[in-house]
C-alpha cells in the first residue's frame, strides 16, 4: 500500500527528478500510461518507482481527463494544484487548521469519486471549488447543530497552525471567528470568499450556485451585521481602537 502511495505521490511531486532514476523493479503491478502505478488493489502487491514525466504543465482539461480515467498521477497532481487553495479557504472560513485539513480530505475524496460527473473538463477548478463550498457549508451547519445540542463545551481556540501570532492577535482572531459563527453558513462563506479570497461576485455566484443579487444581498447583510456586532462589543472595538491595528 505504502509503495503504491509513494508512486502516486511522486507523480505529482518529483517530476523531472525521476527521469534520473530509470531502474525499474516491479512485481505483479501494471504501470499506467504515464509511468506511475495506481494504488494496488491487492494488499500483497508491491511496486517501485519508475522514470516518469512532469505533469505540472498539464492543462486542467487533461488533468480532468486523467482523473476521469482514474489515473494515479492525476490524483496527485490535482491535489498539488488545488489543495493549497482549498486548505487556505477552509482555514479562513473555519478558523482551524486541523478542521481545514479534514475538509480538504473530504473535498478531494469526493472530487475523485465524482470526477466522472465533470462535464466540462476545463472547469476543474470551479468543480473543486464547488465541492469545497458544499463541504464547508455542511461543516458549518454541523457545527451549529453540535453547538445547539452539546452541553457547555469548552470554547474552541483559534488554531492557526504554524503561524506565530501574539497573544493579542489570537484573542482578536478568536473573537472574530466567534462573530463569524453567528452568521448563517451561506453568509459566512460569501463573506470569506469576497473579503478574504478576493473572489468576484460573479465567481461566488457561480461557485455557490446563487444569483448575483443573492450574493450581493448576502454580502451586505453579513458585512452590516459584523460591523454592528463589533461596535457592540466594547472589548473588541476598544482593542481595535489602538494605533497598532492601523485605525
Amino acid at each position: 500500500m505504502l509503495e503504491g502511495n509513494a508512486a502516486a505521490k511522486a507523480g505529482g511531486r518529483a517530476g523531472g527528478k525521476m527521469n534520473q532514476s530509470p531502474r525499474v523493479t516491479t512485481t505483479a503491478v501494471q504501470l499506467e500510461p504515464y509511468g506511475y502505478a495506481m494504488p494496488p488493489r491487492r494488499a500483497h502487491a508491491s511496486l517501485s518507482l519508475v522514470g516518469a514525466r512532469d505533469h505540472r504543465d498539464v492543462s486542467d482539461g487533461d488533468l480532468s481527463r486523467g482523473l476521469i480515467a482514474g489515473e494515479g498521477w492525476a490524483i496527485a497532481e490535482t491535489w498539488r494544484r488545488f489543495a493549497p487553495m482549498v486548505l487556505t479557504m477552509a482555514q479562513r472560513s473555519l478558523g482551524s487548521k486541523s478542521e481545514a485539513e479534514d475538509i480538504g480530505q473530504e473535498v478531494f475524496y469526493r472530487v475523485f469519486r465524482k470526477a466522472k460527473a465533470l462535464r466540462e473538463p476545463d472547469s476543474l477548478r470551479s468543480f473543486v471549488y464547488s465541492f469545497a463550498v458544499r463541504a464547508l457549508k455542511s461543516e458549518l451547519r454541523r457545527r451549529k447543530m453540535r453547538a445547539w445540542l452539546s452541553f457547555d463545551a469548552p470554547e474552541a481556540l483559534v488554531d492557526v497552525g504554524s503561524r506565530t501570532l501574539d497573544v493579542e492577535s489570537r484573542d482578536l482572531l478568536r473573537k472574530f471567528h466567534s462573530l463569524l459563527d453567528r452568521l448563517t453558513a451561506r453568509d459566512r462563506i460569501v463573506f470569506v470568499l469576497r473579503r478574504m479570497e478576493s473572489m468576484t461576485v460573479e465567481e461566488i455566484a457561480s461557485t455557490m450556485d446563487l444569483s448575483l443579487s443573492t450574493v450581493k444581498r448576502s454580502m451586505a447583510h453579513s458585512s452590516n451585521r459584523l460591523s454592528r456586532w463589533i461596535d457592540a462589543d466594547p472589548g473588541l472595538a476598544g482593542f481595535l481602537d489602538t494605533e497598532r491595528w492601523g485605525l
Binding site: G161, R163, L240, D241, G246, L247
Partner: peptide
C-alpha cells in the same frame, strides 16, 4: 460596495493574513 467599518476591515485582514499557505 458599501464600505465595511474600519474595525471590520482590520479584523478581516487579520483573519486573511493569519493563514499561511
Amino acid at each position: 460596495e458599501p464600505p465595511d467599518s474600519r474595525a471590520l476591515v482590520s479584523l478581516t485582514e487579520l483573519g486573511r493574513t493569519a493563514v499561511d499557505q
